[in-house]
Each structure stands twice: as structure tokens, then as C-alpha cells.
Design a protein around this nucleic acid. Structure first.
Lengths: 336, 336
DNA sequence: CTGAAAGCGCTAACAA
DNA sequence: TTGTTAGCGCTTTCAG
């Protein structure tokens, strides 16, 4: 690694002033003879000049950095797709990404303060599962965009998965494939789940079907779903399957629930999809693709959200006015 | 947000020089009257002074940042535990973490160059699955530590999971629980898998058992395992279970393979753990804990590696001389 | 024990 | 059209 070379170095070698070099390299609008500009540029290339980002940052008060506050990278680790595609697009704009995870009990404000100190060009808040977060008053103005979550009163632009639409579409898909008796295993307390349920109900209505309320039940005990919550999937399935009228399709709150449904259904000797179809949400590939039969599911738009967020932060795209819903994709496999 | 206040501001208000303030705040060894020091400190607190990191960085040529080059955040997303715990310890030392993912075809060198420009205090390389990477010559000197992977000739200090030991321990566990006929579904082409297999063989030897070579078979077709590789789990299980002598335990290359094994075993009416025990590696909780019965597995030490790496980069701990192996933890559930 | 001042690399206001 | 120079906020050397 050769010693870093500065504007000064170039200026001296060429016998011009620093400001001329700076102008030639970074500021098209500064007028000067084409000759000079060319000479400067070629020497800079030859020497491998690279601007010192820190010096520039000090001068301008902004660093080419985007801060990202993440909450719960731990809970839904597969959401790291968001970070990845975000990083990918930002990189093409010479922006780096500074992450900090909030889940360990640190407040949003503290995370924000830490990021701020590096003078990022912008800060986003990304949640690892779709929910509504209560931003402290002070944080509102500092956060440009929320990804996979939204602020309580939609005061901050946000990108969220189109849960309702996904619920509608997968239900319609089931109906179109001839299923009428559709059960739904919900994720208690999660917005994602209740929106998905709304979608399901809307699809029923559209097709003049009525929902059997006994077939809408929680997948876990307790007020809010989590990976540690006590599962009641096996019991629910057992009851449904013992009843005189059985569902012919089970829609699951997410792929992990579907995983349990497979086990429960096998246990009572029910064939998928012969006797009952199973469909789900998320497309957590390591599960969905490996189940037997492979699981039909609505893929969360993590990658798309990351990409769009990147474009917004890079200034290539306008922020949504309030909340923008990004559609899921239906992944057809063999469980329906 | 109040206008940032600088050393200068404090100096003026107190009628002392900038250097005195700087010394009082950050340099214990600069001698001055206790009186002055106290006055300065209390005013700084009152005004909420925070050093300008960029200015400091420019002066010293180093920023309070650790760069992390990640490859394939996508392949093993649950490895994000590494990042999380790394971030957690670094934060307590006022260090931020700058991530960049290399998987999208960008070379290591390019990723390095981008990180370098922000003058990080150190750079680590983290892989999302355990393998040996070929670092370009230029990169050797720049990377302080490799996490979850190692350099081809161990020229760079590294932290890797103790695969062999894990293979040994889980096998011994199976043996101690009375299992003698243990089969192993390998992950072709992965170092992790072949080390785990070595461990298994060593455990057999220790207990004067001999391995049935027909019971060591790949979980996927083709030369190297991946999530997209064509699975042959169902076939292998079917053959084993149809043979006159059946295994009484199946050790799986990882939890995703175990997931398939559950399906395949159910399909042929075999009870877990009554007829055969199943054990595995990774502890991908969303799978392992939700399987029926819950899966006994060796937990990858992602969190520990992240923490240790953090301590090393924060200067709280010495770098390993070459490769340090971090032990797995046995998670006992109900499948054995 | 404390003050003054240089200088990190860059940008932009001001001069020539 | 080009050159000179003043800072950005900080640390540190050198005088006093």
C-alpha cells in the first residue's frame, strides 16, 4: 500500500494550486482550460489519487455513510436479506452502511446518538419483523425511513410488506384450486397476522364464502406469538381432524407454524395435499423448500424492501408520503 | 438538537487555551491543577460536550470503526448472531461496525478498499458458513481476524467452530444413551461435515465400535452441499430402513437435513426416538425447537465467536496465534 | 503548569 | 481562468 497521496501532492507536481486540482476532479462547474483539467485528471489517475473521506467529511459536515438501526436481528434472522440488498444498492453510490442493533435493551435514542456521531448522510430504522414501533419524540426527525415496520401515527415514511393483499391472494389461490374449507392458524398479537387474516376474510367475501370461526385459531398460547411461546398447533390440528367436518386447507401464520402443522398432520395420518392443502407466509427457504412436500407460501418482500430503501437513501427515488406496501410473491410448491 | 459545541467554545468561556481543555478531558497524563481540570470537566458535562469524531479521525488517521467483510450473509442467515454479539461488545468500547457483504460477486479486495477509505481501526472477515477461504495476497496483511472460516495456510488468526470435537461429543452422547448403530448423513464437500465425521469416527474408535461404511452417506446429490442441491435424504432413509439391519440413530449433517429426515422417517412409519434417535448440528432454533419431537443438536458457537472477536478487536484479549476452535454446546431435546 | 500555533486534507470565499 | 487563504475540530509540539 503506497503512501496516500493528497490534492496537495498533485498540485505541487503540476505547479498549480490545490483549489484547481480540487475543482478539476470534483467540480464540473468550475471553469478552467480543458488542457489543465485533462492534465490533472490523468496525473490523479496515474498516482491513484483517492479523496480522503474523513477530511472531506470534516469540511462538509457529512460522511458518505448511511446508518441503520436494527431491532431484533435475532428474532427473525432470515430478514438479513433486507440488509444485504440495501447494502448492495448503496454501495453503487459510494455509500457505506453502519449498523447497530438495538435489541439488547439499548434504547433507540442511544443507538441514534451513537450513529449520529459519525455524521451519516441519513438514518433508517429496520425491524426484523413487521410491527408498529413507538419512536421517541426526539427520534422522529432523525429517521428518514422505516423498513419492515412503521411508526405509530405514520409520521415517518415507511416500507412494509403488503400483508393484507398477501392474505387475500393466497386465499384466492386456495379457493381457485378448489378448496372451500380453509382454516387459519394465527400468530396472536402480531400485526402481520391480523392483516393477513383481514385479507383472508376479504377473499372469502369476494367469493361469497363464509368463514367458519372455529377454524381460525391461534398457533401459540398466550397473548403474543414468539418463537419461544408455547405451541398449540398439535392440539388444534387434532381437534379439527377429529371433528365431523374437516378443513380441506390450512393456512399457516408463517412457515415455522407450517413446519409444525406438517408434523401434526402426519401424526394423525392426514395426507398433504391429498386430504388437506397447506399454505403459508414468509418463504423461509431453508424450511419451506425442504419440507415434504415442499411448501407453497407467500414470500416476504425482504429483498425488494431493501432495494427500494437503498434507492431512496441514495436519492434515486422519492420517499413514500406515508406507508408504502410492497407486495409478496406467491411461491408455488407442492403442498396445495 | 443544540448546536454542537467544541473544545474552542469551552476554552473561550473559561478563558483557557484549547489545549488545556483537550488535555483535561482526554489525557490523564497531562499535568495541571486539579482546580482547572475540575472546572473544565464540569463545564463540558453541563454543555454536553461530545468530541467530534471526524475531526479526531482526521488528526489521528484512524476512526473508531471496525470494518467487517461478510461473505454470504444470504446462505446461512442465522449466522447473523455473529454480527450481533460482535456489535454488542464493540459498542461498549465506543466502536462502530461497518459491514459490507462480498457475496454479490464483488471481490474481497474491492470490499477491503471500500472499508479502508473510512480508516477503520481494524478489519475482520466473517463467513456465514465454516470454510477455508483463499485470501488474495494483498488482503493478508489487512485482515486482523477471520471469523467462522480460516485462511488456506492459516496465515491469519482465526476463530472457527470446533467441528471435530462436536462430532465426537454428540456421537459419544448417542453411544452413552445406548445407541450402537449410528448412521451419518453428510454434507458433501463441506469442511464442517468432514470434520464432524472425523469426530464421529474417533468416538467410535474410543468405544471400540466399528463404523458401518454403508451408513455414512451424503444428504444431497452432487459434489458440494448447498440449500439448492438435490436432496437424496428420502432415498437414503428408505434404503436403510428396508435393509435387514437398521440403524438405531441417525446423525444429520445439519438441522435442515434433520428436518428432511423427520419427514422421511414418518413416511416409512418409524418412530423418533423410539425406533431411531435423531441428532444433528447447528441448532437453528426455528427448526430444531419446532420439530416434533424437538431436535437434539449441537449448537454452533456463533454467539461466542462474535463475542470473542469483539473482545479481540477491542484490544481486551489477545489474538489467537493461528486458529482457535470454539466449542459447540449440546442442546438436549427429545429426539434422542 | 499553561498558551500559542501548526497542521491533518479538503472546500469555498475571496483576490488577482 | 487561476491562485491564495481561511477555516472545519482536534491533538501535539514547542515556547514561555
Amino acid at each position: 500500500m503506497q503512501p496516500k497521496i493528497s490534492l496537495q501532492d498533485i498540485a505541487i507536481r503540476l505547479g498549480v494550486s490545490v483549489k484547481t486540482v480540487s475543482g478539476a476532479l470534483h467540480n464540473r462547474s468550475i471553469r478552467m482550460s480543458e488542457e489543465t483539467r485533462r492534465k490533472i485528471r490523468s496525473l490523479a489517475d496515474e498516482l491513484g489519487y483517492e479523496p480522503n473521506l474523513i477530511a472531506r467529511g470534516m469540511r462538509s459536515g457529512v460522511m458518505p455513510i448511511i446508518g441503520m438501526i436494527g431491532d431484533g436481528l435475532i428474532t427473525q434472522p432470515f430478514a438479513s436479506e433486507i440488509v444485504r440488498s440495501f447494502d448492495n444498492v448503496l454501495r453503487t453510490h459510494d455509500l457505506s452502511i453502519l449498523v447497530t442493533d438495538i435489541a439488547g435493551g439499548r434504547g433507540i435514542e442511544q443507538g441514534l446518538a451513537e450513529l449520529q456521531r459519525l455524521l451519516p448522510r441519513g438514518i433508517v430504522y429496520a425491524s426484523m419483523y413487521h410491527h408498529v414501533v413507538a419512536l421517541p419524540a426526539g427520534a422522529r426527525g432523525m429517521i428518514e425511513l422505516m423498513i419492515n415496520c412503521r411508526e405509530a401515527d405514520n409520521a415517518v415514511p415507511a416500507l412494509v410488506p403488503a400483508e393484507r393483499q398477501a392474505g387475500f391472494n393466497v386465499t384466492r389461490y386456495l379457493i381457485e384450486r378448489g378448496r372451500r374449507d380453509i382454516a387459519f392458524l394465527t400468530l396472536p398479537g402480531l400485526v402481520a397476522s391480523s392483516l393477513r387474516e383481514h385479507g383472508l376474510r376479504a377473499a372469502f367475501e369476494t367469493h361469497d364464502l363464509i368463514v367458519n370461526e372455529d377454524w381460525i385459531r391461534p398457533a401459540t398460547r398466550g397473548a403474543t406469538y414468539s418463537d419461544r411461546a408455547r405451541s398449540v398447533v398439535r392440539e388444534q390440528i387434532a381437534e379439527w381432524m377429529a371433528a365431523p367436518q374437516r378443513p380441506d386447507a390450512i393456512l399457516c401464520g408463517n412457515d415455522r407454524v407450517a413446519l409444525e402443522v406438517y408434523g401434526a398432520l402426519r401424526r394423525v395420518g392426514v395426507d398433504i395435499p391429498g386430504d388437506v392443502a397447506v399454505a403459508s407466509f414468509d418463504n423461509q427457504v431453508e424450511i419451506a423448500a425442504r419440507l415434504d412436500p415442499p411448501l407453497t407460501t407467500m414470500a416476504l418482500p425482504h429483498r425488494e424492501m431493501g432495494r427500494i430503501a437503498g434507492e431512496i437513501l441514495a436519492g434515486q427515488r422519492n420517499k413514500p408520503d406515508t406507508v408504502e406496501e410492497i407486495p409478496f410473491r406467491l411461491i408455488e410448491r407442492a403442498s396445495v
